[in-house]
Amino acid sequence: MEKGKVDIEFIRRYIRGELTPREMYVLERQAQADPMLMDIILGMEQETLDVHDDHLADIRKRIAECTGQRQTATRRLAPLQRWAVAASILAVLTVGAWWFTREDAIIEQHEATVAATSEQTPEMPEAEAKPLPEPEAPATKERVADTAPRTVRIAAADVAAANQAEKKEERLAMVTPKADTGTGLLDSTIVVGYGTQQRSAPTGVAARLVAAEMDTAVAASARAAENPNKPSPKEGWDAYRQYLRNAVKLAPGQGVVDLAFTVDDEGRPTDIAVIETTNEKLNTFAILIVRDGPRWLRGNATQRDVTLRITF
């Protein structure tokens, strides 16, 4: 933690006694040199965290009233988001089955390509991360054009895409067992989903829920690379993956971190949040990699949320 930058959640974990002695020491040592950090810790120690939460909710309300902010402007929407996630999961169940039967033929064709690529380079599984053929792009465009019940439609598309990716992975594992052994070493990424608008993560989250069940680490969702409406790395996916491959080498451990973020007007990833992690120690590292990494193209205004998996 750089001086002047305080990770409140980390301090909360300190207070809750969830940190290792070493982590506690590091925080305490930093606090000795950083009055702001020290004051926050001492303040937080005054009462229990649930008491703080009540007061903080009150404060947020008062600030919002004072500025005429709509409550939606704050990001404390957890219960709402949970409902949205539940709704999206429902969409998985209903649309998923339909999609599976419909897309089977395309997947067959797809699988052949992927298998061929992997067979050529069995020692380099990141080859999978290259853009795959785009069987689904036309379908996606159709849906975007069709604005009717938008959220549900797009959720369905994302979810189905994730389903498809999952299926792809399963088949890939069957066809090329060699690639499977290499997955632990994979240091590539996937984009598993996009939200429809800022802060409405549910569609991405639904896709993530499905994607999280994948055993293998990489499923290149190349459809995103082609669609100008969605955020994508400014220099292209290949360059971005290369950047990530280099960046993760410095990581202090191994694991998988799923991030969600928004791309701001200047193309910087912002509002970066960890939505799933297998190794807490990597969270900050993952966020910094994306935050300080190459810029992104925003895509159109309603589709800015990006979900990104980084495998260390």
């Binding site: 305080v6 409140i8 702001m36 004051d39 926050i40 810790i41 001492l42 303040g43 937080m44 005054q46 009462e47 008491v51 703080h52 007061h55 903080l56 404060i59 947020r60 600030i63 919002a64 004072c66 500025t67 005429g68 902010q69 709509r70 402007a73 704050t74």
Partner: peptide, 27 residues
């Protein structure tokens, strides 16, 4: 736009609250 300043402050209100609590010792 006050809403913008509000959003900015919201993001740091927790920090401000703890600092106040540390000195004023009263929620």
């Amino acid at each position: 736009d006050m809403a913008v300043l509000g959003e900015l402050y919201q993001a740091h209100a927790e920090m401000v609250y703890y600092v106040c609590l540390r000195y004023l010792k009263d929620s």
